[in-house]
Structures are given as structure tokens and as C-alpha cells.
């Protein structure tokens, strides 16, 4: 079926094509019936709460885990039987820094170049160091680099064999905003060259920099598409209510949270985001509060974060 087609004609434009993937650990499904397609050259954001199955999905894509059910292809190769071929073409950056802490920057890169069978490992490592802006740090022990440099080195390591697909598992966790910005510029440059990038993240600003996003919670892929599409499909109405210097917001938040029609209340500085799936019910619920002089109500577009937190709540309701 689809997986077969993907192996033949999909190799050109569909890089990841998987269907009904399920993975269980100790009888508990961590990923359930997950299907996804990723086109060549896209930056595909993978979002979801902790323990939602993002890492498990990524590991299934690169052959580190075998799915219990479902099938599919990655770069046109079967994810069950052709993992060796997949591994040659995929750069995988794990959640934890996974280079050798006791090797130097250069030694780490040369090691990777040798494993991937690159003709001149020393030259390849030198070139990577140049590209990464790590010149002058070649002989530094990887374990002694700062968080931002470590992350940069890890990215350099997984792009060194010039893979066709990058799988990045929360690559920017614990990295400062400037390094994150540079990192994303890099990712966009790589994608412009035709590299496909699947990146999992918790950061909404990063999600907004992806061409496409998918939201996964409790093992289910809930929604996917462009950021605009995801926001629109949530049909969420949102109001921002603010008070002078945030006075009484905490009490207001407690009061609104229980009301029918109000699905979500979240504090943002001196204001609250109040959202509901049913616009009319939300209007009714907040109507009495709109009379209050000390409150300033504004209708607003829901943010991606609002949408995700709502999705998460819904998923949890279904899950339990």
C-alpha cells in the first residue's frame, strides 16, 4: 500500500512516510496508531508534552526501536528491514549530549567521519570545525565546552556525514536565546539546501519557525499542518483580560477557571488569557465580568501555546 508507493516514487519528495505506528513498553502504548508524512526540505516540528512519545517516534524512524505495529519508510527505506541503509543517511541528535565527553572536539568529529566512511576524516573534521566556528577550540575536551558550544558541536557532528534527514530530539533544551537563534538560522539554511529536518521541541517560538508542525500527546498524533492551520483548526476563542498592575488577577483566575464555557485560564504578566472552545458559552461566562470597570477585556487570536494547552487538556480527557 502506501509504504510501497513511498519506497518507489516517494523517495523524491516524501522523506518520512509511516502509517499506524504503535510502540508498547510493558504492555503500555507509548505511541499509538501514528501516521505521518514529511516532505523533502521541510522543517517539521514535533510538539507535545513530556512523555508523549516524541522520542519514541524519532527512535522508530531511525531504526533504534522496532515498531510493534504499523509500517513505513524513511528516505524510501523500510523502517523495519532496512535500518542499516537508513542509518547511513540520517543524522540523529539525541536529547542528551551524546558525544564522547573525554575526547576533544576534533577527535569526536574524526571518529564520526571514520564511522561513516568519509575518505579523509581529518580534513572532514577540520572543515566541520571551520563551519561551526569552533576554530581555536579543536583540542578542547568536549565535556568542558559550555552548553551552547556542546549543542553546536552535536549539530556539527550529526551533519558532518551530510545526511539527507536530520532527527533532532529537543536540540535546544537548556541553550541560551542567542545560541538558539543561531541554531535555527542554521537549520533553515540546511533546509534551504534540501535537507529535511524533524525537530522536537517544547518552545513555542521554535514551533512557529517550522514549516509544519505536529502535536502528539499521550501517544496520539492530534493535529498536524502549518502553524496557521493548527491554530485555526482549534476553533478556540480567546480573550485577554488585564487589570492595572495585575491586581486581583489571581482571584479572578480562580473564579473564571471553574465556569462552564471557560476551558482555559492562563496568567501572562499583568493579564490573563481566557479561552473556550464554544465561543457563545465563553461570551456568556465572561459577560458579568465584562461589566467590571477595573477589568480591561480584549478579544484576541489564540496563541499556539493556548492551542496546545487546550489540545493537551482534551487529550487527557480522552485518555482517562
Amino acid at each position: 500500500m502506501n509504504a510501497q508507493d513511498g519506497a518507489q516514487n516517494g523517495a523524491q519528495d516524501i522523506v518520512i512516510d509511516v502509517h499506524h505506528l504503535t510502540k508498547k513498553f510493558d504492555g503500555k502504548a507509548v505511541v499509538r496508531d501514528l501516521s505521518m508524512q514529511v516532505k523533502r526540505g521541510t522543517i517539521y516540528g514535533f510538539l507535545g508534552p513530556n512523555g508523549s512519545g516524541k522520542t519514541t517516534t524519532i527512535r522508530m524512524l531511525c531504526g533504534l526501536l522496532t515498531p510493534d505495529e504499523g509500517e513505513g519508510t524513511c528516505l524510501g527505506y523500510d523502517i523495519r528491514t532496512e535500518t542499516d541503509k537508513i542509518k547511513r543517511q540520517v543524522g540523529y541528535m539525541t536529547q542528551r549530549f551524546s558525544l564522547y565527553q573525554d575526547l576533544s572536539v576534533r577527535e569526536n568529529l574524526e571518529f564520526i567521519a571514520r564511522i561513516y566512511g568519509i575518505a579523509n576524516p581529518a580534513a572532514a573534521a577540520r572543515a566541520a570545525i571551520e563551519r561551526l566556528g569552533l576554530s581555536g577550540r579543536e583540542e578542547q575536551i568536549a565535556g568542558e565546552l559550555s552548553g551552547g558550544w556542546k549543542q553546536r558541536l552535536a549539530l556539527g557532528a550529526c551533519t558532518l556525514p551530510s545526511p539527507q534527514l536530520l532527527l533532532l530530539d529537543e536540540p535546544t533544551a537548556g541553550v541560551d536565546p542567542k545560541a538558539r537563534r543561531e541554531f535555527w538560522n542554521e537549520i533553515h539554511a540546511l533546509a534551504a539546501d534540501g535537507l529535511t529536518v524533524l525537530v522536537s521541541t517544547h518552545y513555542m517560538d521554535e514551533a512557529e519557525r517550522c514549516h509544519e508542525i505536529a502535536y502528539i500527546a499521550y501517544g496520539d498524533l492530534l493535529v498536524h499542518g502549518s502553524v496557521e492551520h493548527v491554530i485555526a483548526s482549534a476553533h478556540l476563542s480567546t480573550y485577554v483580560v488585564s487589570t492595572a498592575e495585575g491586581a486581583g488577577l489571581s482571584r479572578l483566575s480562580d473564579e473564571l477557571a471553574g465556569k462552564p464555557g471557560v476551558d482555559m485560564v492562563a496568567p501572562f504578566g499583568t493579564s490573563l488569557h481566557v479561552s473556550g472552545r464554544d465561543a457563545a458559552a465563553l461570551e456568556a461566562a465572561i459577560a458579568p465580568y465584562r461589566q467590571r470597570k477595573d477589568l480591561d477585556w480584549k478579544r484576541s487570536e489564540p496563541s499556539l501555546e493556548d492551542v496546545f494547552i487546550d489540545l493537551m487538556g482534551k487529550a487527557r480527557d480522552n485518555f482517562q
Binding site: 531504526g63 533504534l64 542499516d84 540523529y92 541528535m93 551524546s98 558525544l99 561513516y116
Partner: peptide, 12 residues
Amino acid sequence: RGTMESLLAMPI
């Protein structure tokens, strides 16, 4: 040390 995971993801 977590290096096994990326080692397993490499063609070795």
C-alpha cells in the same frame, strides 16, 4: 554516559 544511543544510530 548516553553515547550508546547515538552510536547505535550510526552505521556500525
